[in-house]
Nucleic acid binder design. Structure first.
Lengths: 179, 179
DNA sequence: AGAAACATGTAATCGGTTACATGATTAT
DNA sequence: ATAATCATGTAACCGATTACATGTTTCT
């Protein structure tokens, strides 16, 4: 079994019951947000299918005048399916960056725009880092703390690298050799 | 225009003419390999379409008894299409890691298997790092050097983090508090 | 008053992977 | 001998995104 949205749902539900909406939120704002994501259009159908297959159970809370709140939880079959998925060897990490692709061709860009781009990205990274710092003050399992720390380590390294080496791209007409 | 395989091909061809096969190789082994990839099944159709649209030109070398070698190069229209694509704002970085997902549930895993997994991943990261060090000794454009250095910075940080914090996952029964 | 959060779901579309098909040459 | 590299292409399939459809409640 691959680590697709279904497995993702199983994993999140193994931490406790949740609705589709909450799964999406935890993926967006939780300590996994920097390396996991899924859209509603993927989560809801996954949850239905998982229910049909008996891997999750669904309890509905009805509030008149609005959509039901469907609270999902892992069944025993779901637990063992997930433990099974956990036994498979994880595939390679995938990192794709349009930003880095752009920087490859930094010399095709106006200097001003290049600097803007770098500043903006740096700001985003700093914001993510701050978010991760916030996560760390919340009570987390060892796995989550490790993973959150990993994210912090990587973003810190990226920021530091970009800050100290951006001159390589922005200094167009030679000059003092750095590093 | 998004940064899809077509744009990727345009970008690589802007560095010089190449065949589909070579584009794939440069993506696999070149200094971009850690954040860009594409399969033959995506590259060849992209190149055909780009030819139909007049963004690349194709010159075929025929060698009797084997498939033609089709050498592609950017046309002027292709160059401006690429410069145009470069003007668009890059989307967010996407990083997905099944490995990290697995570590989230480290407590569900047998201790031995966990250690194996970490060791294996560490070895892979070190191999990638060594590859990047090799790339750096080759003459590279500033953009490529920056990007290659960025990869090195990130992999170095990841390795160091995992090495110094793996105890958080492997030490199951409490013990000395670290960090 | 208006935006954002809460809440679920479907359908069209898409970009891309995987597997298949073919076959010569070169290195181990 | 056998595997790897060179070399191009097609077709089936897939997982997922985006946009759409709907409607309440709460915050600003």
């Amino acid at each position: 079994m691959a680590f697709d949205v279904r497995t993702l749902c199983l994993g999140i539900l193994s931490m406790g019951e949740a609705t589709g909406y909450e799964i999406k939120k935890v993926l967006e704002d939780g300590p996994f947000g920097h390396f996991l994501e899924a859209s509603f259009g993927a989560i809801y159908p996954a949850l239905s299918r998982l229910t049909d297959e008996g891997l999750v159970a669904c309890r509905a809370e009805t509030h008149p005048g609005r959509p039901e709140r469907k609270i999902y939880s892992l069944t025993k079959a779901g637990q063992s399916a997930f433990d099974n998925a956990l036994r498979s060897t994880p595939g390679p990490d995938r990192f794709r960056s349009e930003f880095l692709f752009l920087l490859l061709f930094a010399d095709h860009l106006p200097a001003e725009r290049l600097s803007e781009l770098i500043d903006a990205r740096l700001a985003e990274y700093r914001a993510k880092l701050a978010e991760m710092d916030r996560h760390d003050s919340v009570a987390l399992s060892p796995g989550m703390r490790f993973v959150n720390g990993h994210g912090r380590a990587i973003f810190t390294a990226a920021i530091e690298y970009i800050e100290t080496h951006r001159g390589l791209l922005e200094r167009r007409l030679g000059g003092v050799a750095a590093e």
